[in-house]
Simulated scan of single mutants.
Amino acid sequence: MEVLRGSAAVAAGVVTESQLRGPNWVRVLPDTYVARGVELDLRVRSVAAFRHVGANGVLAGWSAAELLGVRAAPHDAPAEVVVPAAGRRVHQGLVLRRDRLRRRDVWLLDADGRRRPHADRSRVLAEGGVHVTSPERTAYDLARREPGLVRAVVAVDAVANACRIAPSAVLDVAVRNRGARGITRLPRVVDLADAAAGSPMETRLRLVLVLAGLPRPTVQHPVLYDDARTAVWLDLAYPEQRIGVEYEGAQHAGVEGLVRDADRYTRLVTAGWRMFRYTKQDVLRGPERIVADLRRALRPPRCT
């Protein structure tokens, strides 16, 4: 195991106390150790937080999302655990919450991230498994707690896409938790969400357009190459106007990416598409220009 609860591991004979104090383990929380050399990313920090709190804890928020396979957490996201009682000491990088969770809200994951029946709880936890909030509950919690509307939609898009759930599932959880803090904005978040979104920055690009009052674009629109009988997928599109809008991330860098994109965009332009391509810098620091570009492009041509 790469993460250990020290006292439990010593009692089980996995390691000795002197080994835990040696060069092969790093103490990250009281009585909680990570093997030296293991990157302290959100997944590892979350598992460590779960070991620290104990088997009655449930990973939630971005911690749950990470363990569920969602790769969209902010770089500074803390480990987050729902605990049955308050009064635990606060530690930097760890958020403890008291909240009401129903059985359907909690999944048991084994060390490989696969869901297991609750009947196997003791064995799975002993072998490195964890409790996490379900995808629906995770999206619900992030939707009501993320600061700002845009970040909330980004979170719901990411969980819905990775876990193959409908954004509307967030509202089903809200119905079971009437009166909970933050739920009044959930209908707006769900209305703006789209499970087809391919990345957080694609979501942000879409929201730049929609929140400025432009028509809602189609997400992940397929364009068929008739000659090759293959299709490309546009991040965003206005099919009737043959306008495509794409976010250019790191995957487009490098010689291979440039060559692939050159052929792709040549084919699209030849097929009559007008393509608009934007970077992270454009989305975060120049949204007004994006809106102006697309507003002009969508304007009906003047009659002559």
Rank of each mutant, 00 (worst) to 15 (best):
M1Q: 02
M1E: 11
E2T: 14
V14N: 01
V15K: 13
S18F: 03
N24K: 14
N24E: 05
W25M: 04
V26G: 02
V26Q: 15
V28N: 00
V34K: 09
V34L: 00
V38S: 13
L40D: 07
D41T: 11
V44S: 01
R45Q: 12
V47K: 00
V47G: 10
A48S: 00
A49G: 11
R51F: 08
V53M: 08
G54F: 00
G54T: 06
A55P: 06
G57N: 06
V58H: 07
G61D: 12
W62K: 08
A65L: 07
A65V: 04
E66V: 12
V70I: 06
A72G: 05
P74C: 04
D76F: 11
P78V: 07
A79S: 15
E80W: 00
V83P: 13
V83R: 08
A85R: 15
A86S: 12
A86Q: 07
G87E: 12
V90H: 03
V90T: 15
V90K: 14
G93C: 10
R97A: 02
R97W: 11
R97M: 00
R103H: 06
L109W: 08
D112Y: 06
G113C: 02
R116N: 05
D120Y: 00
R121T: 12
R121L: 03
S122F: 00
S122D: 15
R123A: 14
E127P: 03
E127L: 15
E127V: 05
T133A: 06
T133F: 11
A139E: 07
Y140R: 04
D141W: 05
L142A: 10
R144S: 06
P147K: 03
G148A: 11
V150R: 14
V150K: 01
V153R: 08
A155L: 07
V159W: 01
A160I: 12
N161K: 05
C163G: 09
A166M: 12
S168K: 13
D172L: 15
R176G: 14
R176M: 03
R178H: 13
R178S: 14
G179P: 07
R181I: 12
A193F: 03
A195G: 15
A197P: 10
G198F: 02
G198Y: 00
P200H: 11
P200C: 13
M201G: 05
V208I: 01
V210W: 12
L211F: 05
L211Y: 01
G213T: 14
G213S: 03
P217C: 02
V219N: 10
Q220M: 09
P222G: 08
V223A: 04
L224R: 14
D226C: 08
A228S: 14
R229G: 03
R229A: 09
W233L: 14
L234G: 02
L236H: 13
Y238P: 06
E240Y: 01
R242A: 02
R242Y: 09
I243E: 14
I243S: 10
E246P: 05
G249K: 09
Q251V: 10
H252Y: 08
G254E: 08
G254L: 01
G257W: 00
G257V: 04
L258I: 06
L258R: 15
D263K: 12
D263N: 05
R264A: 08
L268T: 08
G272P: 02
G272S: 01
W273N: 09
F276P: 07
R277T: 10
Y278P: 11
Q281A: 15
D282G: 06
R285W: 12
E288I: 11
L294E: 02
R295T: 10
L298D: 11
R299Y: 06
C303G: 15
